[in-house]
Amino acid sequence: IRCIGVSNRDFVEGMSGGTWVDVVLEHGGCVTVMAQDKPTVDIELVTTTVSNMAEVRSYCYEASISDMASDSRCPTQGEAYLDKQSDTQYVCKRTLVDRGWGNGCGLFGKGSLVTCAKFTCSKKMTGKSIQPENLEYRIMLSVHGSQHSGMIVNDTGYETDENRAKVEVTPNSPRAEATLGGFGSLGLDCEPRTGLDFSDLYYLTMNNKHWLVHKEWFHDIPLPWHAGADTGTPHWNNKEALVEFKDAHAKRQTVVVLGSQEGAVHTALAGALEAEMDGAKGKLFSGHLKCRLKMDKLRLKGVSYSLCTAAFTFTKVPAETLHGTVTVEVQYAGTDGPCKIPVQMAVDMQTLTPVGRLITANPVITESTENSKMMLELDPPFGDSYIVIGVGDKKITHHWHRSGSTIGKAFEATVRGAKRMAVLGDTAWDFGSVGGVFNSLGKGIHQIFGAAFKSLFGGMSWFSQILIGTLLVWLGLNTKNGSISLTCLALGGVMIFLSTAVSA
Rank of each mutant, 00 (worst) to 15 (best):
I1D: 05
R2H: 10
C3M: 09
G5Y: 05
N8S: 06
R9M: 11
R9W: 11
D10P: 00
F11Q: 07
F11S: 10
E13I: 07
G14W: 10
W20Q: 04
D22L: 01
V23S: 00
V23Y: 05
V24G: 07
V24P: 03
V24E: 06
L25Y: 08
G28F: 02
G29A: 13
T32G: 02
A35Y: 06
D37L: 12
K38R: 15
K38M: 13
T40D: 06
V41M: 12
D42S: 01
I43V: 13
E44L: 05
L45N: 12
V46N: 05
V46K: 10
T47Y: 11
T47S: 11
T48M: 13
T48Q: 06
T48H: 04
T48Y: 08
S51P: 00
N52W: 10
N52Y: 12
M53C: 11
E55I: 02
V56E: 12
S58Q: 12
Y61L: 14
E62T: 05
S64V: 05
P75V: 04
A80K: 13
L82R: 00
D83F: 00
S86R: 15
S86Y: 08
S86H: 04
S86N: 03
D87K: 08
Q89H: 10
Y90D: 12
C92N: 09
C92K: 10
K93V: 03
R94F: 08
L96R: 02
V97G: 03
D98A: 07
G100D: 11
G100W: 09
G102P: 02
G104T: 03
C105N: 06
L107K: 04
L107P: 14
F108D: 05
F108Y: 10
F108S: 11
S112P: 00
L113W: 07
F119G: 05
F119W: 15
K123A: 09
K124C: 10
M125Y: 07
G127P: 00
K128T: 11
S129M: 14
S129W: 05
P132Q: 14
N134K: 09
Y137H: 12
I139Y: 06
I139E: 04
M140E: 15
H144P: 02
G145S: 14
S146G: 15
Q147W: 11
M151R: 11
D155M: 09
T156P: 14
Y158A: 11
E159L: 15
E162Y: 02
V169S: 02
T170W: 08
S173G: 04
S173T: 07
P174R: 02
P174F: 10
P174G: 05
R175N: 08
R175A: 07
E177Q: 11
A178P: 12
G181H: 02
G181N: 14
G181Y: 03
F183D: 09
G187S: 01
G187Q: 10
L188K: 06
L188F: 13
D189Y: 05
P192Q: 02
R193L: 01
R193M: 06
G195E: 03
L196F: 15
D197I: 09
F198E: 05
F198G: 01
D200V: 01
Y203G: 04
L204T: 05
M206H: 05
N208P: 03
W211N: 09
L212E: 08
V213Y: 09
H214D: 10
K215T: 09
E216H: 05
W217A: 04
H219Y: 11
H219S: 05
I221K: 07
P222A: 13
P224Y: 10
W225E: 05
W225D: 07
W225S: 02
H226N: 07
T231M: 04
G232V: 15
P234D: 09
P234A: 12
P234M: 05
H235G: 14
W236F: 11
N238H: 12
N238T: 03
E240P: 00
E240F: 02
V243G: 00
F245Y: 12
K246Q: 14
H249W: 11
A250L: 02
A250C: 08
R252K: 15
V257I: 15
G259N: 09
G259Y: 08
Q261H: 00
G263W: 12
A264K: 11
H266D: 12
T267L: 11
T267F: 09
T267S: 09
A268I: 11
L269D: 11
L273D: 08
E276S: 02
D278V: 00
G279I: 01
G279L: 00
A280P: 14
K281P: 00
K281S: 14
G282K: 05
L284I: 10
F285A: 04
H288W: 09
H288R: 13
K290V: 02
C291D: 06
R292G: 00
D296I: 04
L298C: 03
L300S: 11
V303E: 02
S306F: 04
T309S: 11
A310E: 08
A311D: 09
F314S: 08
V317I: 14
P318R: 01
P318H: 04
A319K: 04
A319M: 08
E320K: 14
E320A: 14
L322Y: 11
L322W: 07
H323D: 09
T325E: 11
V326M: 08
V326N: 03
V326S: 00
Y332T: 07
T335G: 13
D336N: 13
P338T: 03
P338L: 12
C339Q: 07
I341W: 13
V343P: 03
V343T: 02
A346N: 03
Q350S: 02
T351Y: 14
T351Q: 15
T353C: 00
T353A: 15
P354R: 15
L358K: 05
I359K: 13
I359Y: 07
T360F: 05
T360G: 02
A361L: 01
A361K: 07
S368Y: 05
S368F: 10
E370L: 04
N371K: 08
M375W: 07
E377H: 05
E377W: 06
E377Y: 05
D379L: 00
D379F: 03
P380A: 02
P381A: 03
P381M: 08
F382W: 08
F382S: 08
F382I: 11
G383E: 11
S385L: 04
Y386F: 15
I387C: 04
I389T: 13
D393A: 13
D393Y: 14
K394N: 12
I396E: 01
H399R: 02
S403G: 01
S403W: 13
S405P: 04
T406D: 06
I407Y: 08
K409I: 00
K409M: 11
T414H: 05
G417E: 05
K419A: 04
K419H: 13
M421Y: 12
M421V: 14
M421F: 13
A422D: 05
A422E: 00
V423F: 08
T427D: 01
A428D: 08
W429Y: 03
W429S: 01
G432E: 11
G435R: 14
F438K: 11
N439L: 13
I445A: 04
H446W: 11
G450P: 08
A452G: 07
F453L: 09
S455E: 13
S455M: 13
L467N: 03
I468Y: 02
T470M: 13
L472Q: 03
L472I: 15
V473L: 15
W474R: 04
W474C: 11
L475E: 07
N481E: 10
G482L: 14
S483C: 15
I484C: 11
S485D: 03
L486A: 14
C488P: 00
L489F: 13
A490N: 12
G492C: 03
V494M: 15
I496L: 15
I496H: 11
F497P: 08
S499T: 14
A504L: 09
